[in-house]
């Protein structure tokens, strides 16, 4: 990776690397014959390795649980019907379904005070491990609630719609779900935030709002938490979420972002 140590005379460099100021795209890579120089093959390989690890390394729920607990949050633990990562990847429907035993336990819990929070691993454990707690702390300072009683539910092998079953079982009026987004090569740790009013099984994606790419290099915690708090207050005031709930701060609603590729399960920006 250390270019200064390589024989740069072997590489045909491109004299337009200053244009990298305008884009994070991999431009001006130079070439050896028709091919990529070794340094770029390694750089790309490392980025891919980090994205792969983000998908496959299990989230350390124990550590996250104790960190949240220390920070004063009231946590619960559940899992989806997807028993492991291969099943999770092949059967998105199972990742959206709450395990029956977990549902029964949530039904025994006191009703949520309007808001319930869900933290699901999704497709990037590193996103959740790094950003869930700081984001939630930023949200807590901006959103008025009896936070000692707001259930923060840690969900294993979860997709976005898993929040519907959890919110319904907890009798919450609003679910805010934090989830690891499908990792890109240049963004292996993006956190996605989903907001669903009156959660119940069978809600459509058009009934949710999404804040995507939450990470220090993308949308920073403070800005994301401000948007989230605004949307959460509006959703409770209007008793709705999704396409009907608009935000003037330039927030994108699911389905409105990038109309160029058909939106399919698990694609940008969501991690359903």
């Amino acid at each position: 990776m250390n270019e200064s140590s390589s024989h740069t005379d072997l590489v045909q460099a491109n004299p337009w690397d200053e244009l990298r100021a305008h884009t994070s795209a991999r431009i001006a890579l130079g070439r050896v014959g028709a091919s990529l120089p070794t340094a770029e093959v390694l750089r790309f390989g490392l980025a891919h390795a980090q994205a792969r690890d983000a998908v496959h390394r299990p989230l350390d729920f124990e550590a996250l649980d104790s960190e949240l607990h220390e920070a004063g949050f009231h946590t619960l633990r559940v899992k989806s019907d997807a028993t492991d990562r291969p099943v999770y990847l092949l059967r998105p429907d199972l990742g959206r379904r709450l395990d029956d035993g977990c549902r029964l336990r949530l039904l025994q819990e006191p009703s949520a005070p309007a808001l319930a929070v869900v933290i699901a691993d999704g497709l990037s454990s590193s996103a959740v491990q790094r950003h869930a707690l700081p984001l939630l702390e930023a949200f807590r300072t901006r959103f008025d609630a009896d936070w000692a009683k707001v259930p923060v539910v840690l969900a294993e092998q979860g997709r976005v719609a898993l929040g519907d079953g959890i919110g319904e079982a907890l009798r919450a009026r609003l679910v805010v779900l934090l989830i690891g987004e499908r990792p890109g090569l240049s963004s292996p740790d993006s956190l996605g935030l989903y907001l669903t009013c009156q959660p119940r099984v069978g809600r459509m994606d058009s009934e949710r709002n999404c804040i995507s790419n939450v990470r220090p290099e993308g949308l920073p915690y403070d800005q994301a938490a401000t948007k989230l708090a605004y949307l959460a207050r509006e959703a409770l005031r209007l008793n709705l979420s999704g396409v009907a709930l608009k935000d003037d701060s330039g927030l994108q609603v699911i389905g409105e972002a990038g109309g160029s590729r058909p939106r399919v399960e698990g694609t940008v920006p969501d991690a359903q």
């Binding site: 994070s24 991999r26 990529l36 890109g184 990038g258």
Partner: peptide
Amino acid sequence: IPGADDIMLNYQ
């Protein structure tokens, strides 16, 4: 695509 990495659509 530059370097095969689409930074908008997040795929290779």
